[in-house]
Each structure stands twice: as C-alpha cells, then as structure tokens.
C-alpha cells in the first residue's frame, strides 16, 4: 500500500511547463488557464515548474500567462527532455515543496514523464483528462477522462495520496490570457543531478512535419477520410482549406492507406482539435475519430451515406459526393457576400 500522507501539508497547483527547443508548448498555456481556475477554487497559488537551459525568457512568459511562482531548474543536462533527468528533478521538487495538484500535458513527453514521476512519489495519476473540477465538499479534484476509446467517460479521484496528478489532453482547455504587466516570483530549484543519473542520450531531434502545430491552432480544418478514394483527393481539400484560411486534417484510415502523413491525423490516436469550423469530407465518424474533433464549434459533414454516424455530431450535414460538393462549396464561398445580400433584398 502506498503511504497515505498528511494531506494538509500539500498546497498549491503546479503546472509542468513543457518546453521544446526553448519554446513553451501551447498545452502548458492551456494548463495555466485551467490551473488558474483550480487555484482560485482551492484558494491557493498557481505555480509553474520549468526545466530547461537558458530559461529566463520562458519564466517571464509563464508569469505573463498567470503563474504566481515559477520553480526553475536551469541546467545543460535539462536542455532536452530525458525521462531520468526530468523525473529526478521534478520528484525532488515535489518531495521538497509538496504541491497539492500537479498537471502535465498529455503529450508524448508528458505521457512518458507523468507516470514515472507518479510511481516515484507514490501517488495516483489520471490520464488524458478532458475536464477538471474541484469538489465543493472536500476540495478534491474531480478528474474526468474518456476511456474505452471514448465510449465511456470516467471521473477519477485520488483519495489519500498527494499530489493529485493528472495529464490533460492538449487542445481541450482554454488558453490563459497573456498580460505582460503581471508580477510573479522566480524560484531557482536546487538541482541534484549528475551526468550518470541520465541513462539515455538524445542524439538528434528530427522534425518531419510542420503542419502539426497549425492543426491544433487552426481556426478551420478541412478533414478528409477514406471517402476521398485516393491520395490526390487531399489536393482538392487543400484548395478548400486555403480558401478558408485553414489546414488539412485526416482520418486514420487515410493515414493507414499512406495517402497523408500521420501528423494530419485527427482522433484518439492522432491530434485533438478544437477549431471554429471542422469540415469532415468522406469521414464515417467512428468514435475514435469523433473523440478528437467533437468540441469543434461548428462541425460540417459531407458524406454520400445519409446514415453515416458523422451526421450525429454535425451542425450542418450535406449528403452528397464530396467531389461535387467541395468544388460547389468553393464557388459559393467566392459568392459569399452576394448570397447574403441577395437574401436581404429578396
């Protein structure tokens, strides 16, 4: 049995500020937005923990996004993420400072790091949360997450162990507002880390696609599925996306076919997106796809099959062949103002 701790000595909300190549990842700004809400409800401070090398500007940025305190570990050994180094520094800091809640982004880094830290500091960890709330009665954090491929939502609590840890799905929480006039405190952590503690060595970081960042930041996503029938179909979708100032997304079926790179994949095992407009072209709407796009503001579905499940989540549905509908849609977009004016005068 993991040791049940004196809960009252654990205070404040911590956000792990994930940085890659000296840039704070967008999910960390989302966590600061969410963390502020939790800190207010528990009457505590919002803190960020930042590991890296030459971190000064990033620490300022975190304060501008709302951190009251930034715990900083600045060391050449922490420049790139490694499980060993990051786990040691964060676990030491947790033992020392005793946060009540620790949030990390459910990125490929966060999902490597968080379980390792949780096992070391002997506490519970809830995976890939999409909603966090404070229980008004006992102030515990209620962590809600999808499981069974999005078929079930489960609300998880961490009973007698601290900190309460969660990884949070990127793209779900609202970003914190930036305010350069905010004040905060930067606290240097005492780092007990030797080169021998780090058993893996990152020798190279290879970037393969630049679209990814834009997928989570995009206002408009035009996504294609198996209904495209061929790889070239994505060129048509690209034209529509360009016209609407958006980017191209894809279902896993098209990625599996090799029609488009994995970095475009939306869904449970791809990227979670939350654009203003999501246009699903020739996508059936499997639960694993819907899991990654259902919180889009407006979902438009174009599909030949009127009973495709995608229509269940669509705000606007068009039954038809996407190769007819998409070109006509581009024409209609060109005529946009005229169409509205014609309606007014009619």
């Amino acid at each position: 049995m993991p040791i049940v701790k004196d809960l009252s000595s654990y205070k404040n909300v911590w956000v792990f500020a994930e940085q890659r190549q000296g840039k704070i990842m967008p999910v960390s700004i989302e966590l600061l937005g969410e963390g502020r809400k939790l800190a207010t409800e528990t009457g505590s401070e919002l803190c960020a923990i930042l590991l890296g090398y030459n971190t000064e500007d990033m620490a300022k940025e975190l304060i501008a996004y709302g951190a009251d305190k930034v715990y900083v570990a600045d060391n050449a050994l922490l420049e790139n993420f490694t499980t060993d180094a990051y786990t040691k520094v964060i676990s030491d800091a947790i033992y020392e400072v005793k946060p009540e809640i620790v949030l990390m982004g459910a990125t490929h880094i966060g999902r490597d790091l968080a379980p390792r830290v949780a096992a070391r500091v002997d506490t519970g960890l809830t995976a890939d949360c999409t909603q966090l709330e404070i229980d008004p009665e006992d102030k515990k954090i209620l962590q809600t997450r999808p499981a069974f491929g999005g078929n079930i939502m489960a609300t998880i609590v961490c009973q007698g162990h601290r900190p309460q840890m969660s990884t949070v799905r990127p793209g779900v929480m609202s970003k914190a507002e930036m305010d350069e006039s905010r004040k905060g405190e930067v606290i240097a952590l005492d780092i007990k880390l030797a080169k021998e503690d780090v058993r893996t060595e990152v020798v190279e970081i290879v970037k393969e696609a630049k679209e990814l960042v834009s997928l989570t930041d995009a206002d408009v996503i035009v996504a294609g599925g198996k209904g495209l029938g061929k790889a070239e179909g994505f060129e048509l979708l690209k034209q529509l996306a360009d016209k609407m100032g958006g980017v191209v997304g894809a279902s896993r079926a098209t990625v599996d076919e090799g029609w488009i790179d994995h970095s475009h994949q939306v869904g449970q095992t791809g990227t979670t997106v939350k654009p203003t407009i999501y246009i699903a072209c020739g996508i059936s709407g499997a639960i694993q796809h819907i899991a990654g796009m259902q919180s889009s503001d407006i979902i438009i579905a174009i599909n030949k099959n009127a009973s495709a499940p995608i229509f269940d989540v669509a705000d606007y549905g068009i039954v038809g062949d996407l190769y007819e509908v998409v070109p006509k849609l581009m024409e209609a977009l060109d005529k946009g103002e005229d169409l509205v004016n014609a309606l007014k005068t009619a």
Binding site: T155, I156, A332
Partner: peptide, 28 residues
C-alpha cells in the same frame, strides 16, 4: 491511489441541420 468516482456515457450533441436541395443550393 485512484478510484473511479463515477462513469457515464458522453452526451450526444444536439440535433444539427441537414441541408436540402441541389448541391448548389445546399452549399449556398
């Protein structure tokens, strides 16, 4: 350390609009 406090089925989204007419009418 963790407990499933409750579980539920995600709410389906409210009914959307199915557009009707010819392809040109629907897109417009």
């Amino acid at each position: 350390p963790t407990r499933v406090h409750k579980s539920f089925v995600p709410q389906p989204k409210g009914q959307g609009v199915m557009l009707e007419g010819s392809v040109q009418e629907m897109t417009e």
